[in-house]
């Protein structure tokens, strides 16, 4: 049996890792909620954002400082990609959307590979090894920052959807595409805004991940499957669901890693996943059909 301090450290670690999963899942669930489609390019965009953050750091800009400008840039890129490529190429057909985003992911990953080679790169920030000592635990500072910022972004996104006109329009399009168009909401614009917000979340996630992880052209794959699990677990399209799902998956992964070993730790994640789907097929916060 493990000492309580070890278990406490694993829980804290799970929460901090889970918050980043949640942030990555936010973008995925948002696009799903509005366009009812899984964006296969999600991981590739995360990889691209991590490279952007990496080169920003090389140019002397700290990832945490770069987070906001990169979020704006990636919002623009996401908006443009949906408006100019994904939207027109899918002709309103869901299956086309799947294929176009899949193609996009292949193109982005291979462009990254061609441009930067598959070298695994890391950055060494001055605070990279900083810890806060709390009740005998060494809490990693970059991970705590990632946790706090992820929660803030989640809350901000939720507030945006709940309180602003754009948020209302997004919710309207998500609920009833035709009806929203009839009352004068530009659905194509809203789709693009949603895609842009999703990419902006990824840009922030990339800046939070870079000081604690590494970047190579395939890095997105590492996170996208777990983000998808979080989305389904929390309820497809639900923002609080993605936040809670992310934290839950993080803690479960960390604890099962501790008890069953890291190789079998993933079993715990999918066990919880299957149980939740059996009990609540729509996910924790999913609307029942």
């Amino acid at each position: 049996m493990f000492a309580p301090s070890l278990i406490a450290a694993a829980v804290v670690n799970g929460l901090t890792t889970g918050a980043v999963y949640a942030l990555i899942a936010l973008g995925l669930t948002l696009v799903y909620g509005v366009l009812h489609i899984i964006n296969f390019a999600h991981g590739a965009i995360l990889g691209a954002a991590m490279f952007a953050a990496y080169f920003a750091y090389q140019a002397g800009v700290d990832p945490y400082v770069a987070a906001l400008p990169l979020a704006v840039v990636f919002f623009g890129l996401g908006y443009a990609v949906q408006r100019l490529v994904v939207g027109p190429a899918s002709h309103g057909e869901d299956r086309n959307f799947l294929l176009v985003t899949l193609g996009l992911s292949i193109i982005i990953e291979n462009l990254l590979l061609a441009a930067f080679s598959s070298d695994t790169r890391t950055i060494d920030t001055p605070y990279g090894f900083s810890t806060l000592e709390f009740a005998g635990l060494f809490l990693s500072l970059p991970k705590l920052i990632a946790f706090v910022v992820s929660c803030l972004v989640g809350a901000a996104l939720w507030a945006l959807l709940a309180a602003t006109d754009t948020g209302k329009a997004i919710r309207a399009v998500a609920k009833e595409r035709m009806g929203a168009a009839l009352v004068g909401i530009d659905a194509a614009h809203i789709f693009a805004v949603t895609f842009g917000l999703s990419a902006a979340c990824l840009a922030v996630a990339a800046c939070l991940l870079l000081p604690i992880y590494y970047v190579n052209p395939r890095v997105g794959e590492t996170y996208v499957l777990v983000a998808f699990t979080v989305v389904v677990l929390g309820g497809m399209g639900s923002i609080p669901g993605a936040m809670l799902g992310g934290l839950l998956i993080g803690v479960v992964e960390s604890l099962s890693g501790l008890f069953f070993g890291d190789s079998l730790g993933q079993l715990g994640v999918y066990l919880i996943f299957i149980i939740v789907l059996l009990v609540r097929p729509a996910g924790i916060f999913g609307a029942t059909a």
Partner: peptide, 13 residues
């Protein structure tokens, strides 16, 4: 202690 590749986090180890 065994771990998968890629691993997202090595803190537990």
């Amino acid at each position: 202690i065994a771990h998968p590749t890629p691993a997202r986090d090595m803190s537990n180890i």
